[in-house]
Structures are given as structure tokens and as C-alpha cells.
Design a protein around this nucleic acid. Structure first.
Lengths: 129, 129
DNA sequence: TCATATATGCAACTTTGTTGCATTAAAAAT
DNA sequence: ATTTTTAATGCAACAAAGTTGCATATATGA
């Protein structure tokens, strides 16, 4: 039987924070903001759970840091899109989802595609004044 | 004046290893293989230096782990291509450069593109037997 | 071979992420 | 409303990843 999903204070707080934020957030950013309503480990586990439940996704930036964002328009619940396109502003550090289509990529023979992760680095509109 | 470039045993060993390897390597993989001809910190510094010199580039995988590869065909020395396209096999973990063109991405108005990092996850030919 | 700037090793430290276990608390069942 | 069950939390301890300062060693140009 599928694992039961439970709504807890920590989970609600994390979702609320991701929901409010215009930019994707790192574990550290989330934990610091929640200080100290819950444990560091709990934040890790809540994020893992959100991803497992399909409510959020991880974004690995070019420098290897990982951010989290809610999955709003990226799936219908049953068919979650695992390929994501994100923009990372190299000035303010903000990370946002781009609406563009994930471009088709041609793979060598016998390679099998699973999913694509694309991060565009540049300057966002706010920083480009 | 520009900083002088120096060839050392550690640097040579790291380049040799990256050069020989079919797949991009992490710091840990490099350090373990070199055991213990040089210090852990030295490997970090050699890798940083190689990147600064434009001889290597970092690859951030979807899970946030970072790998390194030499820049062979990705620049002419003067005009280094900072946009990279990599394939990450989710079975063997291997990471290789793909030859395909980086697809054009349409950005929202006032956004400025700097570079693009694209990681295709899937099964490589060897694992797809 | 000497001088000098660069690279290394080492120790210490910070940050990031993980694991085990006893306790707490949702939510379902009664 | 109370009990039961199972998932979630906190805490401590750990492991992994990355950084910094400084004294020493070494590559290269003079």
C-alpha cells in the first residue's frame, strides 16, 4: 500500500515559503528563514518528501548548488514533467522557471533519453535596468 | 601582469587522468586515484587552476554533484565556449560531452543570456545492451 | 645557481548532507 | 472522544565536501 501523506507544521511552512518566494530556494535559505521553528534535518526530509510526492523539484545550478521550487505548471499530477528549464541570474542569484519548451536534443545511436536539465545563466530583467 | 602558469607534478597527473578517462571525473574520483601522491587540497586547487586557465570545465549534474573534464574541442583558446552539453548515464554514472549544438533558448524580454548548461540524463550505449 | 613568485602540505575549520533512534504527533479506526 | 498506527521530528553523532592560513618546497626566469 502507498505510504500515507501527512501534513505537518514543518511541511506547511516550507511549502508556504516556496510558494511565496519569487525565486527557487536552497536548503540553507529555507532553514535560515524558518529559524528555529524546526530542525535542519527536518528541512532536508521535508524537501525530500515534497520531491517524492511530486510537489517540488530540485534544480542544480551550474556551480553545483541545489535549489528547490514547487511544481506548479510542470505536470498534471499524474504525468509529471521531469525535464526543467531554469534561469539563473548571475548577478542577484535568483532562479526562476522559464516557460520555453525544452529543446529537442539529438543523442548518439543506442543512447536512451530519460530527462533533460537546462540552466540558462545570465542577467534577469530586474538586474538589467 | 598576468599570473605565471607553472607545470607541476600534481597538475600533470590530474591532466593525465582527465585526458585518459572516457568520462568526466569528480574531485573525489581524482583524489582517490592519485592516492596519495598529493594532498586533497592540492587537487581542489589544481582543478580550480585548470578552470581558470581555460583548460578544464566544471559540469554540475542534476543531483548537484560536480565533475570535471578537459576542454578539448570547446574553444580555440581565445574564444572559449562556456556553454556545454553533457550526457549523464543514470546507470553507470558516466558523464561525457555531447557534440550536438546547444539549442537556442528564447528568454523573456530584457533578460540577457550569458551561457547555457545542459545535462541530458539517460542510458548510454554501453549500458543499453 | 639564485631569486622569486607560485604551488604544496598540513592542520584546522566550515558547510553540507546523512543515519539511527527515541519521542512526538497526524490521521484513521474504534 | 479515545485509542491505535504509522509517519514525522529532534537530537546527537557522523561523513563528505569544500575552504583558509601559513610555513615549506619547487618551478621557472634571470
Amino acid at each position: 500500500m502507498p505510504k500515507q501523506v501527512r501534513n505537518t507544521a514543518a511541511k506547511t511552512a516550507v511549502i508556504e515559503m516556496l510558494n511565496t518566494s519569487k525565486t527557487a530556494l536552497s536548503h540553507a535559505e529555507i532553514y535560515n528563514h524558518l529559524q528555529s521553528t524546526c530542525d535542519r534535518v527536518t528541512v532536508y526530509r521535508v524537501l525530500d518528501r515534497l520531491i517524492e510526492e511530486g510537489a517540488a523539484h530540485r534544480i542544480a545550478l551550474s556551480d553545483g548548488t541545489v535549489k528547490y521550487a514547487l511544481c506548479e505548471e510542470c505536470g498534471d499530477g499524474h504525468h509529471h514533467m521531469h525535464s526543467h528549464l531554469h534561469f539563473n541570474c548571475i548577478q542577484c542569484g535568483g532562479v526562476s522557471c522559464l516557460e520555453s519548451e525544452i529543446p529537442k536534443v539529438q543523442l548518439p545511436r543506442k543512447f536512451k533519453l530519460h530527462d533533460v536539465s537546462l540552466v540558462v545563466n545570465g542577467i534577469c530583467a530586474s538586474c538589467n535596468e
